[in-house]
């Protein structure tokens, strides 16, 4: 469903992604693993065209995304949940959801507020609170809910477990599995192998912006030397 082919991305003169390639199949939950600074967030942004790759292709449902405006990428059914959450702190929960709202899309779930409030009960209680009045975990839920309002068929989750309480991390894992059961495809980036093991089918490990491993989690578990070389345990 998503194919990254020889992507090179830069920040100014800094070469962040070098010849990065991997694929994600429809219905999979893929984990993009790597240390701090390995290029995980840049990969996410390069898919979303928030960072425009200098070369290579990002094919989504057989269309190259490179050079498209981010809003066009979103309209094609790619939902992006940024690492630093970036909720609209001056807007209420309901208004945040409204910003993410897009028309229904064929072949994927059409989310309503009530469905999202079932998925994230905390948000229901706080629907009229402003974003800045919420805890980190609640903000993380809101940013996922906001993206789901766009009815994506594919969700990019940038470090969903970062900086939130363990009990909420568990809830996050349940949410991701639920999304999978609804037929959504997910690419999530993680430093936490434990979290990835709980939700993901396949793993992609990157280091220095290049792909070092691409396979199922079972394959990764069978090769502890790879884990030791590229992931801090």
């Amino acid at each position: 469903m998503l194919e990254i082919a020889s992507v090179n991305s830069f920040y100014g003169k800094a070469h962040v992604l070098s010849d990065l390639s991997f694929t994600v199949q429809r219905g999979q939950v893929a984990a993009l693993l790597g240390r701090n600074g390995a290029g995980k967030s840049t990969t996410m942004k390069s898919i979303m065209q928030l960072v425009v790759p200098r070369s290579g292709q990002v094919r989504f449902m057989d269309r190259d995304l490179v050079g498209l405006a981010p809003h066009r990428v979103a309209k094609m059914g790619l939902g992006y949940v940024p690492e630093d959450r970036r909720i609209f702190t001056d807007l209420t929960v309901l208004e945040n959801l409204e910003v993410g709202r897009q028309p229904a899309r064929e072949g994927t779930v059409t989310w309503t507020r009530d469905m999202l409030f079932d998925l994230f009960p905390n948000l229901a209680e706080r629907r009229n609170n402003r974003g800045k009045e919420m805890s980190g975990g609640e903000q993380q839920m809101l940013t996922i809910a906001r993206t789901l309002m766009g009815n994506p068929s594919f969700v990019l989750l940038d470090e969903p477990s970062e900086g939130i309480a363990p009990v909420i991390v568990e809830q996050m894992a349940r949410v991701i599995l639920q999304l999978k059961s609804e037929g959504l495809t997910v690419l999530l980036s993680e430093q936490n192998l434990h979290f990835a093991r709980a939700v993901a089918d396949v793993a992609v490990i990157i280091e220095g912006g290049a792909q070092k491993f691409h396979g199922t989690l079972a394959e990764l578990n069978a090769q502890p030397e790879i884990r030791d070389a590229y992931l801090s345990v």
Partner: peptide
């Protein structure tokens, strides 16, 4: 507040 994010939301 964050126009880039608004764009990323479609």
């Amino acid at each position: 507040q964050d126009r880039e994010m608004v764009g990323a939301l479609g």
